[in-house]
Write a protein that binds this DNA or RNA. Structure first.
Lengths: 261, 261
DNA sequence: CATCTATGTCCAATATAATAGACATCTGAT
DNA sequence: ATCAGATGTCTATTATATTGGACATAGATG
């Protein structure tokens, strides 16, 4: 994932990086895997993966589960994640905000952030409509595929954006190529307007609304989104954006502000 | 923490182990620290800590927060922890169970697990009484200090228990020495009875009740506990234990069972 | 039976990671 | 002014971690 740094030659990878590559991979897969499978699928030497997996197992970072030697993320990670959540205490407010949003609009509401150089839905509240959302919570998705993506990188310079986003992520799910310059223009537009909306790139029937939730540094630390059927979204555009902006204002400075310190 | 493995000579520490030692340390401290402070307090070479901290920062495992170069656990850990929680989906049921327990007894109810070779409160629900609980959620505590500890190691042999628990953890908070053989006798008693209760070792005014929540392997994967004022606990002993056992039965096989796989 | 893949273990070679320690600031105390 | 401690950066040395590849086993397949 992140390890697209210096794949240049056949250089050795650092254990730490490989380790977190394994963890990220398991998170993406959302299922227990055998060390052998992990090695094959992330393209790492088997001996290295076995060594690292054993180390991680003995630290409680990974756990045996699913039988036949399969491993998945371990309890220790849960504890560490809980400590993070406790420190940057955004969960409670966030949950309430999403609930209110979903109630007001009857649409699916999401709270999204960057996960490294990709986008992820941190929390979601399904709306009243019987509607299948294409992105699952916790899955990482290329930034250019999402409305929120336009807002989450808006604090970077054009060049930094290009350096930050993996080039292959401009290839859209349908196979088309999104010209980086087009994307950057949309980023700047989103930055000016303080919002971004479009017909989803990922599917053919939803419209997405995103507004920034600004952190202490003033740039978008997260976004609030609505995912709606296209016609509903267009019909209620102004009201939905209004709801989103009010909700974001309520969260402002809540995420990314530690409880103490 | 776990790195008490082979501290024998002045051998080099492995980067991965040091890294997780840093993460665990930050979790214990529950606050952002400067790399220099971390190095001093965990007794690691400063150059190593700076190197590792920078690596972890670039992976999103650590984040700058609190200013002056202080670092704390990062967003990536939250994502990984959320994936764990999602996979072993015990949170929802657990929360409901604790709420019911707290309602029925008006005492503080806790859901506890092992964190490596120590004990930790994973979730807690304060009871109606205005009562200060001495252990905070997420803090790791020596196993012998707790009632739950007797249950959580009961599946191990005597020798394995002694190998598992760090020797210094038999030193109680008051300074007294708990004879390991005494502890093991209590473990076996707890195992036979399927519960353990005692006047807290950590403070002088509470009584603790613990029952096991058995996982798929049949041994205590977690415990449910009540922490009560001593007189109340003794007065309501039978009823409280009854509530706990019913609650544990409701959770049985819920923790440690993945949703799929 | 022969052959192939999937799986896990083990070992030697060497690229490199962990470390000690020098150096440079800055701060507050004396 | 002088000293001591805290903080961060940088470099050279060497112990070792990462890796390729050999080896062993078990199923599956023809």
């Amino acid at each position: 994932m992140d390890a697209v740094q210096d794949e240049a030659a056949g250089k050795r990878a650092r254990g730490l990086d490989r380790a977190f590559e394994i963890l990220d991979f398991l998170r993406q897969k959302r299922q227990a895997l055998k060390p052998n499978e992990i090695a094959a699928q992330i393209g790492a030497p088997r001996s290295s993966v076995y060594e690292l997996v054993n180390l991680l197992l003995s630290n409680g970072i990974l756990e045996f589960t699913g039988g036949e030697g399969r491993v998945y993320l371990g309890r220790k990670l849960y504890f560490l994640g809980a400590a993070y959540e406790n420190h940057f205490d955004f969960t409670r407010e966030c949950e309430a905000t999403l609930e209110r949003l979903a109630d007001e609009t009857r649409e699916t509401a999401q709270f999204c952030m960057l996960d490294g150089n990709r986008y992820t839905v941190v929390r979601m509240r399904e709306g009243a409509r019987p509607f299948r959302i294409s992105t699952d919570v916790g899955q990482s998705v290329p930034i250019p595929w999402t409305a929120s993506g336009r807002l989450l990188v808006a604090h970077l310079s054009d060049q930094d954006i290009l350096n930050f986003i993996p080039p292959q992520d401009f290839r859209l799910p349908g196979g088309e190529w999104l010209e980086p310059q087009t994307f950057i223009a949309e980023v700047r537009q989103a930055e000016r307007e303080g919002l971004f909306t479009f017909n989803s790139i990922v599917d053919s029937f939803t419209h997405c609304f995103a507004v920034p939730v600004r952190g202490e540094e003033g740039h978008a630390a997260a976004t609030l989104c609505l995912v709606t059927p296209r016609d509903d979204g267009i019909a209620n555009r102004d009201r939905y954006l209004d709801c989103l902006k009010k909700a974001a204002a309520g969260l402002e400075h809540a995420p990314a502000r530690p409880k103490r310190g």
